[in-house]
Nucleic acid binder design. Structure first.
Lengths: 230, 230
DNA sequence: TTTTCGATTTTGACGCAACAAAAAAATCGA
DNA sequence: TCGATTTTTTTGTTGCGTCAAAATCGAAAA
């Protein structure tokens, strides 16, 4: 993945700077849920951790903040975002529109001989769930979704979707383990594969949309409970 | 508009830095088409132009590049983006999904007593077209669209749509004056207002979508001609 | 005339230090 | 013990010099 990222950078013409490494690592940690929502990240800490001076470290944090992978809590403090209910709802509606489109486009470009690869990913999700390795299940789940999206031949769309996942990533990882991932996602994924077999992009789109909606309902449930606690 | 931007910054907690002014001005110039696609922007030029040192100037350019308002042409050169046909198509499909959603949501929040304000904007578009002041017509056209979007109560969605407009802004401004804006957009806008009168968000959405599609066809036409020239 | 190669100039990235502002800690008073 | 206020520390931003790399221009060769 990081190599793909680099090649993307190169394609866009940007040479690899020192801070890019910090950016990549931080971004991956954010998606994987290595940071807790609300955690503060400072320039000097990043600089020391990666052995850089302040300029490239600040660049990395700035970039993440601009992409909303981090947010400003005060004039001088960037933290890992903590989604509100209304933000979660909004992101979900955008995901339905964007990922529905990407799934449908991607489905038209996926031939039947690529289905085994998808099933392999799904098996990894199931295995991870059995081991209660939720972080890994979430990661494989991302791979499953983007297997469709990345074949849509719409790089801008994929990048935009990735930004949405980045926004909700930390909260997602923080919330799900507590509640455990329901198996409802499994049947939606199977329905998507089934749609692929039928050569019906609409069916794939509907399955992915249902998957997003189901995930939303669970997340909303956990999130609203947590709000009540406070 | 710039005040609204500032308040947005403040709401998100970020204190105003020196480079923010350069960022805001550059961004507005980009949307208004003051730069030609392909034009190169350098750190030192921006620094001198705004009376800053290189660091905040570089920050401003970096931010614009991250938001894709500028793109990398080489490892050390950022330029005003020049859309390809496939990028235009992709952005259009995303606009249909996102702005369709925003228009529908916004329409449900617009009461009938706000229709006159919309008609005022439409009149400004017509007047600008009569005077062949295309840049101004384009600007008013943006206001018309975002009149709906901004009332959707979905700030993340609106920001994402704005980024898409920023991507195509320079090319848009560069292409349209040559061809003149067709009046087809006018009828679509009227249809949107009509939908508002009927209290039918779906009708509004359909009208906006048709407007986007019409604009796309014209832009594609001009753009493909220009490709042949080269 | 076109292309290729090399020298010159320009440019962005980075490190570092100084500064101002915000956050955190400690102190004091009730 | 709690809250407000002052002191201390931490932190982001900025300015500027340096350096390596890329872009540009020109000359020479095909």
């Amino acid at each position: 993945m990081s190599d793909k990222h680099e090649s993307l950078e190169r394609a866009s013409g940007k040479s690899v700077g020192l801070g890019d490494h910090a950016y990549t690592v931080l971004k991956e940690k954010l998606i994987r849920g290595s940071f807790r929502p609300g955690e503060k990240l400072t320039v000097r800490r990043v600089a020391q951790e990666f052995g850089l001076s302040s300029t490239p470290a600040r660049d990395a944090l700035n970039r993440l903040a601009i992409e909303h992978a981090l947010v400003y809590a005060g004039p001088k403090t960037v933290i890992v975002p903590n989604l509100t209910l209304s933000q979660l709802r909004e992101v979900t509606e955008m995901r339905l529109a964007l990922e529905g489109l990407a799934a449908e486009k991607g489905a038209t470009a996926i031939s039947s001989d690529m289905i085994p690869a998808l099933e392999t990913i799904q098996n990894r999700i199931n295995a991870a769930l059995d081991r209660q390795a939720y972080a890994e299940a979430l990661w494989a789940n991302k791979e499953f979704h983007f297997f469709f999206y990345e074949r849509s031949n719409m790089p801008i769309l994929v990048a935009t979707i990735e930004q949405l996942w980045l926004r909700i990533g930390a909260t997602f990882n923080d919330l799900y383990p507590a509640f455990a991932i329901s198996r409802s996602g499994v049947s939606n994924h199977c329905a998507a594969i089934e749609g692929l077999r039928h050569g019906d992009p609409h069916e794939v789109r509907a399955a992915i949309e249902t998957d997003i909606r189901n995930g939303y309902r669970q997340l909303r449930h956990v999130l609203s409970e947590r709000f009540l606690e406070k």
